[in-house]
């Protein structure tokens, strides 16, 4: 599902990735760890086409991302659900409208979108909050709304960047359980996190990023 071939990403005075190889199979759930500034977000950004690699190829679902341009970038992003650390909900949109956004951009009508939004809200257990504004919700609830937005389009791949960064251990564990539920129905999940105490208790493969080099599970050999 996710394939990195000799991928390097250099910023002006920092090399975030250095000839990295990685192959995460379809249906897997993995954690991406590393100290702050190691380049975890950078790797996710390459998958979302928010950044382009300096070298190498990123292949998602058999699609070489370097070949995508213009509208193809938008279509690629629709296939990937992204969960942010700081949830990135729009303040003047209701919970419903926030979650409906990925559906509206691909042309869903209000009826179908509403149905799907409620299904997603149901999955994260916040069906009663549909009409509210995000700012009246707790941090944990906001994070779950962010997750509902990421899964509403039924993507085959979910990326999460520090999804538990602002949460207490109990809430963090709940969020991780949500991701495990999605993974159980076949969705590939990659979670970047440095919350080691939480990750170590979970039975999923870990990929470690240190000074631009990957180690641990799913490391492709070259």
């Amino acid at each position: 599902m996710i394939q990195l071939e000799q991928v390097s990403k250099r910023y002006a005075n920092k090399t975030a990735l250095d000839h990295a190889n990685l192959h995460i199979p379809r249906g897997a759930m993995a954690f991406l760890t590393g100290h702050s500034g190691a380049g975890k977000s950078t790797l996710l950004k390459l998958i979302m086409l928010m950044e382009r690699p300096s070298n190498g190829r990123v292949i998602i679902d058999q699609q070489d991302l370097s070949k995508l341009n213009g509208n193809q970038i938008a279509l690629h992003r629709r296939k990937v659900g992204l969960v942010f650390q700081n949830h990135q909900l729009l303040e003047d949109y209701s919970v419903h409208d926030n979650i409906a956004l990925p559906l509206k951009v691909s042309g869903y009508n209000n009826l179908d979108a509403g149905r799907r939004v409620r299904a997603a809200l149901d999955k994260v257990g916040l069906l009663s909050k549909e009409k509210q504004l995000p700012r009246v919700l707790s941090t944990g609830e906001q994070q779950r709304i962010g997750i509902a937005r990421a899964i509403v389009n039924k993507p085959r791949l979910i990326l999460a960047d520090e999804p538990t960064g602002n949460l207490d251990p109990k809430l963090s564990a709940e969020i991780m359980q949500l991701f495990e539920q999605f993974n159980q129905v076949g969705v590939t999940v990659l979670i970047a996190s440095h919350d080691l105490s939480l990750i170590e208790r979970l039975p999923h493969p870990k990929i470690h990023l240190h000074q631009g080099h990957l180690s641990g599970a799913f490391i492709g050999s070259n």
Binding site: M48, M50, G70, N71, A74, L75, H76, R77, R78, K79, L82, Q88, L90, E91, L101, P102, V105, S106, R149, N153
Partner: peptide, 16 residues
């Protein structure tokens, strides 16, 4: 701006 960024990330085309 925020709205535009989020819409881009969830796959909104330029036309949209």
């Amino acid at each position: 701006r925020e709205e535009i960024l989020v819409i881009k990330l969830v796959g909104g085309t330029d036309a949209y």
